[in-house]
């Protein structure tokens, strides 16, 4: 099913902004409200917008199910690798070893309100990005699968 041209154009226009805003929420997860799950859900909302406005075959040409499955598995893998990296640094599983003496995200902050610095929080930004990719892939795959089920129903 296709919506009118106005709706389709608006959805096309808003789709990249949805992705960018979701990415912003994911990357700033340790500074502002939000995080991996919320940002991933916002990015998946962009896909939902396209799915509402356009036909199923139209969307699958742009957003491939296989690529989204890879996204999902890669997100979980990033999360696991970041968790196990604590073992190689001589700390327990899931320990935040980057925060005090890692190479990246190592700036330490004192207790109290501050303006926020992106280069903080050790392992947390990596975990945020991993979970964000996983939620984006997972929700998009669920949406595409459910819509393919409806399409099959119509054909009979």
């Amino acid at each position: 099913m296709k919506m009118t041209k106005i709706v389709r154009t608006t959805a096309d226009l808003f789709f990249p902004f949805c992705l960018v805003f979701g990415l912003y929420v994911v990357v700033h997860g340790h500074l502002t409200p939000g995080g991996g799950f919320q940002g991933g859900a916002v990015m998946a909302t962009g896909t939902a917008l396209l799915l509402v406005a356009r036909a199923y075959d139209d969307v699958t040409g742009r957003i491939r199910k296989g690529a989204m499955k890879v996204c999902e598995a890669a997100g979980l893998l990033i999360f696991l690798c970041a968790g196990f990296s604590g073992l190689f640094a001589g700390r327990p599983f899931m320990a935040n070893w980057l925060a005090p003496d890692g190479a990246l995200f190592r700036t330490s902050i004192a207790h109290g309100p501050n303006a926020g610095d992106l280069n903080t929080a050790g392992l947390l930004p990596l975990l945020n990005v991993g979970v964000g990719i996983e939620v984006l892939g997972g929700l998009t795959v669920i949406l595409l699968y459910m819509l393919s089920g409806i399409k099959e129903e119509k054909k009979k």
């Binding site: 500074l31 309100p113 303006a115």
Partner: peptide, 10 residues
């Protein structure tokens, strides 16, 4: 307020 320290009022 919400427990987030970025530019938060006391």
């Amino acid at each position: 307020v919400a427990p987030i320290f970025t530019n938060v009022p006391a």
